[in-house]
Design a protein around this nucleic acid. Sequence first.
DNA 1: TAATTATAGATAAAAATCATCTATAATCAG
DNA 2: CTGATTATAGATGATTTTTATCTATAATTA
Lengths: 165, 165
Amino acid sequence: MQFSVGVEYALHCLVYLVNLPPDSPIGIKDLAAYQGVSDSYLSKFFTQLVKAGIVRSVPGVKGGYELAKKPEDISFWNVVTAIQGEASLFQCKEIRHNTLPFRENKFQCYSEKCLINSVMLEAESHLKNYLCTKTIAWLHENLDKHIPEIQQEQKRWFKEKLYNR
Amino acid sequence: MQFSVGVEYALHCLVYLVNLPPDSPIGIKDLAAYQGVSDSYLSKFFTQLVKAGIVRSVPGVKGGYELAKKPEDISFWNVVTAIQGEASLFQCKEIRHNTLPFRENKFQCYSEKCLINSVMLEAESHLKNYLCTKTIAWLHENLDKHIPEIQQEQKRWFKEKLYNR
DNA sequence: TAATTATAGATAAAAATCATCTATAATCAG
DNA sequence: CTGATTATAGATGATTTTTATCTATAATTA
Ligand code: SF4
Ligand code: SF4
């Protein structure tokens, strides 16, 4: 049970989009070139981010992607669900339905009143609540503090790409 | 990203082992027959539960499995890690290493100081802490309250199997 | 000694994940 | 209007993980 790499790609790329001049979207080609993956691969994640309302897409010449919200309104949890979907971590496979007394049609097991399910859901909500408190704005700000050289280099590169369109 | 079904099987089966007479292990055949799966399948999970110190195995004739600890000392988290392993939910795939300035050997990215990684770890610890508070004893007790008929039937069945060995 | 039982490992089907490529639709610069 | 550019959608396939079973082996006890 692992987070998808897509979450990692999305978080990194969203940081690139912070603090750019308004109405100057960045194309998927540039983003993909920077990340070192194919455009079609990265674009899939951006399509999901669009659907989740995290980024806005501008089609056509000089189109691309830009943040649809303020970075302080985009939480880690938003990104995680945008990429992995809303499905909860624990999905009851209804194994009890295959249990002896059930096979003999003695009982039914309804997952609504399932204790295991409710415990897992509650546990997940603790994870969720924490991830909701961490935003792209926070990430951007702290990356600037922790790895300033890398961040500067990265900003330089995207500003230049924006300039040469 | 989903919990393994193994967790569901393990939690259900551990409840069956609560409140049985001492030194009377239940064989994997009975457990598997009750669950409606093959012994070899279920036994794999029990081997993992043994390695995690949750159950004790008794080989040979009239052998089987019994709880190795008091049910109030077995948490949901214990079971989850026994089955899925200790690996954390977020594993950095080091995607930044393939990023443009890194490909040009300008920088290195050490995951020890990675902010994303630390946020994910902290989030997971919230999930962990909650799952540590819920035990097999709690589950057993509350299942008895919520679905008493099913629990009675289940206890009847295992007691009978124990009797006929 | 023989039957029983856990353990280990081989095997394979099914599902999910990762990654790329192609075709299409929308937009804008000229 | 036209052609280039760009996002979107979907097909495709490789790889990995998950699920499930079967077989062989080792330990134990009746
Ligand atoms: S008790 Fe809960 S987890 Fe188990 S089969 Fe029923 S609904 Fe699913
Ligand atoms: S910044 Fe963190 S998540 Fe990203 S590549 Fe570096 S270590 Fe991995």
